[in-house]
Design a protein around this nucleic acid. Structure first.
Length: 426
RNA sequence: GCGAUUGUGGCGAAGUGGUUAACGCACCGGAUUGUGGUUCCGGCAUGCAUGGGUUCGAUCCCCAUCAAUCGCCCCA
């Protein structure tokens, strides 16, 4: 039998896992600074949550969910995204009753979508996300966007483009949709097959069709911006104003649509520019969802959030050659020669570790020379050599690997000596 | 779900219908019986994704499957 990793999943191995931990630490830290608290929800939920939350007609729900029934006959689904779960939890735990509104939450974790894998698109992928529920102040929209942009900046990623749009409220959306259908319908047979299908289903999508982008009707198509009612327009303008004040540049793209039903008003994406990303250029997607809490059985509570893909972030960092500070070697490698010293090594190692020194030794019965090679490979700052001579004298030989300098140290002084040396290295 | 390309050791990468599947890196051992990163020598494939088929004989030909990559769709 030949068991392999499931399609569209990946093992994150040593060498890469450090990068994950690094970006995770930045993420936790930035959320802390923005005063968002972590929420952890299950990776599977009742299927109905996503049908109602994400939208029954969306591709995500219709053809991309991992749905199964458990032994009790319940229909469950692996979460395809995070917002629905967070809102479910907000309602279920009556977070709306808390004096602290908006409820500012963030999460981290794997999401699952049954799609054809390609680079930057996995069946299991990890999202970092944020949700602020309970306020419809445009300032919270701006805050959430700023959080995302600052996060990327701190990872060292460049060439980002913030794309902004407003989908308006329900009324504006409906008016725009009708206008689009009216606009395209008379000449829809001049468009590609995809667009013909889009006409009734999601006419907005026709606007970013690549095949028909030169069609004269594209240019003259009604823009959502022109269909925003007074209130929606006002809201959109304020968000922009606040972004300007924070000096966060953005471009407005009236064609920006989100594939999830719950969005309204503010919608945004953060894209990456440059070569090497293939078809995948969106790093982050987010927006406002003022009807979702109600849809899931809570009181009317507006919300906004976004999710970003860690895989895509790491891929972008790789393409841009950003060096993450994760390539450090260990502090000390213990080399022993002979039986007695080898035995004594176990306790010496333990002592170093208890003192906070990152240390290791050989377990492959290697010769001294090979132990040094290992120390090299591990980029050890120091080696501590314990042979019969040192052992009998109660000493140990400490070697600084870069300079080659060696020093005999009393065995009981080893950790203090090393700590001092390591301190002065920094 | 559709289309295209690819699949040889830990990694990179040659190659052929027929006795022992190049080479490079990495790894292990030795030269140097207690000191590494250089050099030299030696070693290192459950056999060429998996399963069938054609053939006297296939890693190389055919089919299927699986996977990766790219494009479409969609999205993070």
């Amino acid at each position: 039998m030949d068991i392999r990793i499931p399609r569209g999943t990946q093992d994150i191995l040593p060498g890469t896992s450090e990068k994950w931990q690094y970006v995770e630490s930045i993420w936790h830290d930035i959320c802390r600074r923005f005063n968002y608290s972590e929420i952890r929800t299950p990776i599977f939920e009742q299927t109905e949550l996503f049908q109602r939350g994400v939208g029954d007609t969306t591709d995500i729900v219709q053809k991309e969910m991992y749905t199964f029934s458990d032994r009790g006959g319940r229909s469950l689904s692996l979460r395809p995204e995070g917002t629905a779960s967070v809102v479910r939890s907000y309602v279920e735990n009556k977070r709306y009753g808390s004096p602290n509104q908006p409820d500012k939450l963030y999460y981290t974790g794997p999401m699952f979508r049954y799609e054809r894998p390609q680079s930057g698109r996995m069946r299991q992928f990890v999202q970092f996300g944020v949700e602020a529920i309970g306020s419809d102040d445009p300032a919270i929209d701006a805050e959430v966007i700023a959080l995302a942009m600052d996060f990327y900046k701190e990872t060292g990623l460049k060439g980002l483009k913030l794309v902004l749009n407003s989908l308006g409220d329900k009324e504006s959306r409906q008016a725009h949709r009708d206008a689009l259908i009216q606009h395209f319908k008379p000449r829809i047979d001049e468009f590609c097959e995809d667009c013909q299908n889009r006409l009734e289903k999601n006419p907005l999508r026709i606007l970013d069709c690549k095949e028909d982008q030169d069609h004269p009707l594209m240019e003259s198509a009604p823009s959502i911006i022109d269909y925003l009612n007074e209130e929606s327009l006002q809201y959109f303008n304020t968000v922009q104003e606040l972004l300007d004040k924070m000096e966060i540049p953005y471009t407005i793209d009236p064609g920006l649509v989100r594939g999830i039903d719950y969005y309204n008003n503010t919608a945004f994406e953060i894209m990456i520019e440059g070569d090497g990303f293939g078809a995948i250029t969106t790093l982050t997607g987010g927006g406002r969802y003022n009807g979702l809490v109600e849809e899931l059985g809570g009181p009317k509570s507006p919300g906004i959030g976004f999710a970003l893909s860690v895989e895509r972030l790491l891929m972008a960092l790789e393409v841009q050659g950003v060096e993450l500070p994760v390539d450090q070697g260990i502090d000390c490698y213990l080399v022993t020669i002979g039986e007695e010293p080898a035995k004594a090594g176990t306790a010496i190692l333990a002592e170093m570790r208890r003192a906070g020194i990152q240390a290791d030794k050989d377990y492959m019965d290697k010769k001294m020379k090979a132990q040094f090679k290992t120390a090299d490979r591990l980029k050890a700052s120091f080696t501590a050599v314990l042979g019969e001579e040192e052992w009998n004298a109660g000493k140990i030989n400490v070697k600084h690997m870069n300079s080659g300098e060696q020093q005999e140290v009393e065995l009981n002084q080893l950790t203090t000596y090393l700590k001092k040396k390591l301190e002065s290295e920094k």
